[in-house]
Amino acid sequence: MLLIRNEKLRNAVRIAVPFFIIPTISILGALVFDGKRHILIALAVAVLSLVLFAAGFEKKSTGTRRMVIVAVMTALCFAGRFIPFLKPVAALTIITGLYLGGEAGFLVGSLSAVLSNFYFGQGPWTAFQMLAWGLIGLFACMLSKQLLGSRILLLLYGALAGLGYSFFMDIWTVLWYNEEFSIKLYAAALVSAIPYTVSYAVSNVLFLYLLAPPFGEKLRRIKVKYGV
């Protein structure tokens, strides 16, 4: 994070940005812009937080090996988006967050979004997708103690992440379509997205169930042997 030397402060900023500053900007923006340009604010917030993160990453000296492993996981996520119906992106992001830390998790999630949208189409939604997947990875790291301890909790987290992702992206859908947030439209969007939501949750649970143990073993070897 942006040249902040003190680690505590850095962590504070890391949590403050997504949880407090972003909502504050959104609310303020909503008041100032007379509730007409929600989408502008939402987009600005998403891009801002991503830029903040990127700036922090650029300044910090991350080990080269860790960087390459992030690239490897990102590539695996991208490849995974081609599987019909089931999407392993979130599951792989969670695994990365658990074993390699929050920053790596955030990066894998958000970079997978940019990268795969080269194929699936870039757009303003890319920023939201980046944020959503990134946060899924970040939170996984914050909860890593609990999640690594219990398989059930991990699967539960996967399911929740699937739901959360869908809810989050639908906010964007509504804002784009309607420029003003409307509960009714949101509900409609949520209902029409049910098949997707279910597929997200199911794929997360399925892939976490299948992939978490072997990936854990492999990532642990890398960690011990090469000191990533």
């Binding site: 990127a54 990453f57 991350t62 992030v70 690239a71 990102t74 590539a75 990066l107 970079l111 990268l115």
Partner: peptide, 14 residues
């Protein structure tokens, strides 16, 4: 961000 761009380009090659 040159670093991020490098990670992206590597992933793209992978």
């Amino acid at each position: 961000s040159p670093k991020l761009s490098l990670v992206l380009s590597m992933a793209l090659r992978f």
